[in-house]
């Protein structure tokens, strides 16, 4: 059974690698949704992040710039979503779906000229000392820079949301906008800010796919990860730390499926492929009723546009 240790280690390493794009998407979405704005546009945001980052890297060779461009592109789409849902008070679900379609279309059109080329990419880099720790080093500290950034983002966001004044403002706007408003908080500005910021972080998830995980642009290369991320936000109950576990769990299930096949285990692959979605359905069931949603921590006014004149 000496083979079992490397098997587990490599599978966990793959879980981190495959889970990171989901993690960025979920972290961004948590920020947006905490402010009370529902965002179903993740798939489109990721695609726009993937193509814009790729184009920037291809044209300039500067990866730092590529991430900035991806975030700006995500922010631009986020601004559209914010304008429609916060200013015009359009149905947030409809606007989110529109963002997905818009992002898919824009990325496909923009990407036409970038098929079949390779750009500068984030290569795995070992972190000195940390990567020498047996097992842990291989699992966590032998990845690309974006993965390490995501490690830092998780505790930072957690501290921000739960332990800072700004985080409390964010949560207040999502839970009870009238109360926040009466305390002098500009609900519209807060929602605008976190929608745009969240969308730009989500876009990094897409850029990870085209600049770190792979080094290419392929139309629709997110392949549904945006939808999984939406389910993961519920799964994580809008908590950045749980988001980490959720993302790695989803990434790990796929990796495990491949690895079981690779050693010739006779398992039905369809079943393994189904597992993440099955988990999603279970989570959706658990968070479907209003009572349960509130208990697990869903922002109370998620999906409800705020208006000063109307009582909700």
């Amino acid at each position: 059974m000496s083979d079992i240790v490397p098997f587990v280690v490599f599978t966990l390493q793959a879980a981190v690698r495959a889970g990171t794009p989901l993690l960025f998407a979920v972290l961004g979405d948590i920020l947006t949704e905490r402010s009370g704005v529902m965002n179903l546009g993740i798939e489109g945001l990721m695609l726009v992040g993937a193509i814009s980052g790729f184009v920037a890297s291809y044209s300039t060779g500067n990866l730092f710039l590529a991430i900035v461009v991806a975030m700006l592109a995500g922010a631009a789409l986020g601004l559209v979503h914010a304008f429609f849902t916060i200013s015009l008070r359009v149905n947030q679900i409809v606007s989110g779906l529109a963002i997905t379609m818009l992002g898919t279309g824009i990325s496909g059109l923009w990407g036409k000229g970038y098929v079949g080329v390779v750009a500068q990419r984030f290569t795995p880099m070992r972190i000195p000392l940390l990567s020498d720790i047996p097992y842990i080093g291989t699992i966590f500290f032998n990845h690309s820079l974006l993965v390490y950034i995501s490690y830092i983002c998780v505790p930072l966001l957690w501290l921000f949301v739960y332990k800072t004044k700004y985080g409390m403002t964010l949560r207040a706007v999502g839970e009870a906008p009238e109360a926040a408003d009466s305390r002098g908080i500009n609900v519209f500005a807060v929602r605008y800010f976190y929608t745009v910021l969240g969308c730009s972080i989500t876009a990094i998830g897409g850029a990870y796919l085209s600049l770190a995980y792979n080094s290419m642009w392929i139309e629709n290369m997110t392949a549904g990860r945006g939808w999984i991320a939406i389910a993961l936000v519920l799964f994580a109950t809008w908590d950045p730390v749980k988001a980490l576990f959720g993302a790695y769990l989803f990434g790990g299930v796929t990796a495990l499926g491949f690895r079981l096949q690779a050693i010739g285990a006779d398992i039905p692959t369809d079943f393994l492929r189904m597992l993440p979605y099955l988990l999603t359905v279970v989570v959706l069931i658990f968070t479907s009723t209003e009572k349960l949603r509130l208990r697990v921590g869903a922002p109370a006014t998620l999906g409800i546009p705020y208006s000063r004149e109307e009582k909700t």
Partner: peptide, 15 residues
């Protein structure tokens, strides 16, 4: 065409 998944499948056998 899901490059990330296909890459992961290749790595599982490369490992």
């Amino acid at each position: 065409f899901d490059p990330s998944l296909e890459r992961e499948a290749a790595i599982s056998i490369l490992d």
